[in-house]
Write a protein that binds this DNA or RNA. Sequence first.
DNA 1: GGACTTTCTTGATTTCGGTCAAGGTTTTCA
DNA 2: TGAAAACCTTGACCGAAATCAAGAAAGTCC
Lengths: 229, 229
Amino acid sequence: MTPFTPASITDSLHRLPLFSGIPPHELAPLLPGVREFKVRAHEMLFQKGDSLRGIHVLVSGQAKLFMTTAQGTEKLLTMVKPGQAFGEAVVFLDRPCPVSAEATQDSTFLIVAKDVLLTMMDRNPVFARQMLASISMRLHELMSDMETCTLMNSLQRVVSYLSQQVPESEGPACEIRLDTSKQMLASRLNLAPETFSRALHHLAEGGVIEVSGRTIRVLDTQRLKTFQA
Amino acid sequence: MTPFTPASITDSLHRLPLFSGIPPHELAPLLPGVREFKVRAHEMLFQKGDSLRGIHVLVSGQAKLFMTTAQGTEKLLTMVKPGQAFGEAVVFLDRPCPVSAEATQDSTFLIVAKDVLLTMMDRNPVFARQMLASISMRLHELMSDMETCTLMNSLQRVVSYLSQQVPESEGPACEIRLDTSKQMLASRLNLAPETFSRALHHLAEGGVIEVSGRTIRVLDTQRLKTFQA
DNA sequence: GGACTTTCTTGATTTCGGTCAAGGTTTTCA
DNA sequence: TGAAAACCTTGACCGAAATCAAGAAAGTCC
């Protein structure tokens, strides 16, 4: 277990994209507002409607952000990976949180309180820009999700997702390891699990991928992107 | 026609939510980076894929932000009203713009160049926060749209939209004036125009609204929100 | 290692909303 | 003012994806 010391926290912070542009010694003013939490898999971090005291940063483990319907079904928005922050937009608007968050693995995360963030932003323009870039990025991702969800059919959505997961500048083939269950991925793509399953089956039949559990082997990246019917 | 002078532009800027927190005399450093444009209805402001030199602020008129499918159909994202800024996230990320923008009425808008914005943010923490709040707001709106588009059926989407348009703290009844054509609204709600029309008809039959052209009279706000089938 | 649960797949059926088509209404503009 | 265009509504039909149902596969835990 990592010791819970100012030095270790400064170190954790410095490894995170959001703070990596800041020299470690300038991170000191943040420390009074940083708290470290450890949660077990399936524990809730916060719920829709909560107000957040600060931004959350996942240090290790995995979490999911999702919305819930009146009927209790979940719609996955995104998986959070180590190094990523979430809740920025909520904190800066002082509004109830529009989503819920839950750890999907045993996880460690930091909460950086709103007040120290604001002071840091005031003192350090580089950090302010970083913060802005981070939220802008989130906005772009959401736009992109909106695009897939509204303009594409089920097969195209799956193709689009897989294509995004393909690493850059590789040969025609590659292997993708899904980071969640297929039903959660289906939810993320706004599909019924059955539909997602059929889409994968269809792609496999067409000879562009091979599915084996959570591992998907893309045989031809180009053909995948242009796969029709 | 408004004269195109530093004084008039400072004045325009100061009226905008994004800059209203800044004393007018502090706006001076922005001026070299501000340009005013006038466009006629149906002129494009920019297209998906363009890179933007600065944020756009609509001074007067009306514009729309939308996405286009490969087949050329449009999906309306949002209507821009006077005082609103757009393109912030694009500017701060230095990425190609994910959406297209077009004036829907004769309009005047300002482009505030990226470099002067960044300098202003560095000098003026209040402005930096304002900028962050503005983008955060956009993110929240998009989340809310995502929620309606993915978790609700057609009727619920229309009900949700109308409910949002109802002014706060009023009696049970009120009148809503649609700010665009019904087909555009349909697109915004991710519905075929026919489906939108049928939804309104259905609500009118149920006695919760009365439709007359672009004016919709809500007879009972509460019943509207809980209207089923 | 075997029972239990959870996850995934496959087929049959249904349904919501899209598409097509046609008629009516409103707006635009000469 | 009147013709043309754009917009809206309504009905009939169709289809993509959800739901329902049941069985197979994989993961979990004594």
